[in-house]
Design a protein around this nucleic acid. Structure first.
Lengths: 346, 346
DNA sequence: GTTGGCACTCGAGAGCATCGAGTGCCAATC
DNA sequence: GATTGGCACTCGATGCTCTCGAGTGCCAAC
């Protein structure tokens, strides 16, 4: 009884070291080949010093425990969701990004000019380039930003535009309808009142901006302030999607592609997928873990980015569940870090 | 010699009436079934009163003339690009939109609130819904719009945002970098100078806005005005794409889907595809007519929309070359009309 | 506990016959 | 002379069988 054995399997994922190595190797192999993995392929893998027979024995166990799956009796093994999950959990914090790619990221943020929306859009492109999957970028929330400029501008006889410029570079806007009687002077008064009330304050401050004004102007001010409610509530966080074409290439059933595209078109779903990561840090959701049925064959990696110490937004990549996790994870990590830095500077 | 015969085939597309009917029927059938069409299917079609044998004889001719193609000897016929082209040219100006769909469009524009970008985005969604293909919407150009508000706002110690609000509801913006020495007062001066120079003018007016100011402020004004150059040149026309998922469902090779998505991700390409339609009116480009190789299996329908009598933007749908042309054409026509009306009102 | 050996499984792929949609052509018909 | 029914022909799709081989599970030997 002097052989070391685990005295208590505290977690299901507590696998003996060799089983873990084999599982890792299977996942690794499947990620690169997209083909069911046989025992001999694993036995030949570096770091595994046992015969195919031994590997087979372990594989039977791994299958019983739900980490692997056999498409049919005489085929190799494919990782299950649980298998991927183990693989990801066991992943050390590696620097998997090649020097070339790190340079690419650095060069991108060094040379990036232009305005916030454009930057976020291009960031999505960058992230997609790095990973070959679809990239998602959710803009910084308005919570920690302060209003730098706010105004109400008449653009047509019955329409005015409320526009706020925030300290984080975001521009929030909404239209309101005017009745015919509203004079240009009223609009100007309301605009000035908004400026007095909001400039220097966060957009979500609830203020009595209309105080001491004509009732009609006060109503105008309230209406204008109200157009920013959805922004404040985060219901309209803009999300930028890039690299859908690359993602399409990663699946082989057009139906799957269609379903995933359909999800990506629903901003609300995407935003809610990404939102709850804000206070969790770098996160991976595999298949059903996303909570969205059509993403059953996908994995989603999300990380928040910090501006001046606050987690204000998130970026992520969406790919097939057999994605290159190490690479994707570090791409997301690096880009979120650098994006945060870029937005913090100045 | 008293049988009527065409004395002179002025155009290649000059087909005897029966051949034309048959060709139309083939295209129609292929559009709905996506299967090669046989002679008997056509003989049974309404409006064709001849036997399959006759149809076959005509089909041989149509194939020789390049309107049809036979995938293999014992299969039905498939329209060529030229075949589709004939079909489209022969299409009368029909009202193909069901009452339900017309209502949908009307309801949409009646209830549409909100700001320009959002409206255009949702218009893309609407158009995609109506047609089941991908929809493209290019926002109104700035040429005929007038500046209602323009300002320069400092958002960070070394960054300022130039924002212009135009009479058509568009908001144009760009960042400029400041050097450390620039004071807030300088920024305010520049902002005021911009306002004096531009408000009430089109954004592309070339003005000496910096006249009579400190050189540093004048330089600031010039830099700020310059950020709108790409906008004025039309290089940054924003394009809204909707319904990519639906479009994906219309192709059966994932590779095709990938290629088309890849095109749609390149705003520049999309905008240039749509731009040259501005002064042409409702237009159909089939396959190679688009001038973009990856769209060989696609067709693109584009129409401009008019605001106050000026053609300022374009909308369109992109689908497979075997798209439902009558329906798509009238959807594009109706939506472009109504979008123009909606943007003209007020 | 590990391993080589071995019988077994089962999908992939090749070869082959069948089926039938659709053709081209020709002679008969209107 | 245009149209048509008839008919032989073509060729992909479908289904069957056979083979091949990758990969398995199990067992006996180490």
């Amino acid at each position: 009884m002097d052989t070391p054995k685990p005295e208590c399997e505290s977690a299901i994922s507590m696998l003996e070291e060799r089983k873990a190595s084999i599982l890792r190797a299977v996942v690794q192999e499947y990620i690169t080949t997209a083909q069911p993995v046989g025992s001999s392929a694993i036995a030949n893998a570096p770091g595994i010093e046992v015969s195919p027979a031994t590997v087979r024995n372990e594989m039977v166990q791994l299958e019983r425990q739900g980490y692997l799956h056999q498409p049919h009796t005489s085929a190799g093994r494919v990782p299950t969701e649980k298998g991927y999950r183990f693989f990801v959990n066991a992943l050390g914090p590696g620097r998997e990004l090649g020097a070339m790619q790190s340079d690419q990221v650095r060069a991108f943020f060094d040379h990036s000019h232009g305005e916030l929306e454009r930057l976020l859009h291009e960031t999505a492109g960058l992230l997609s380039n790095l990973t070959s999957y679809a990239a998602l970028v959710v803009g910084p929330g308005t919570r920690s930003a302060v209003v730098r400029s706010i105004q109400l501008v008449r653009v047509a006889s019955r329409t005015a535009l409320a526009v706020a410029i925030l300290s984080n570079g975001a521009i929030e806007k909404g239209t309101i309808e005017l009745d015919e009687l509203t004079t240009d002077a009223d609009v100007d008064l309301a605009s000035a009142a908004l400026a007095r009330a909001f400039i220097g304050m966060p957009l979500d401050s609830r203020l009595a901006a209309g105080e001491g004004l004509d009732e009609s102007v006060a109503r105008l001010v309230d209406t204008a302030a109200a157009v920013f409610n959805p922004v404040v509530d985060g219901d309209s966080d803009h999300v930028f999607v890039g690299g859908t074409a690359r993602m399409a290439g990663a699946f082989d059933a057009v139906e799957t592609v269609r379903e995933v595209l359909s999800i990506l078109e629903q901003q609300l779903v995407v935003v809610s997928l990404m939102r709850d990561v804000l206070d969790r840090g770098l996160t991976v959701a595999i298949g059903s873990e996303t909570g969205v049925q059509p993403l059953a064959e996908c994995a989603l990696i999300v990380a928040p980015y910090e501006v001046d110490g606050d987690k204000v937004g998130t970026i992520g990549v969406l790919g097939p569940s057999r994605m290159n996790y190490p690479q994707a994870l570090s791409a997301v990590a690096v880009v979120s870090q650098q994006l945060g830095d870029r937005l913090s500077e100045g």
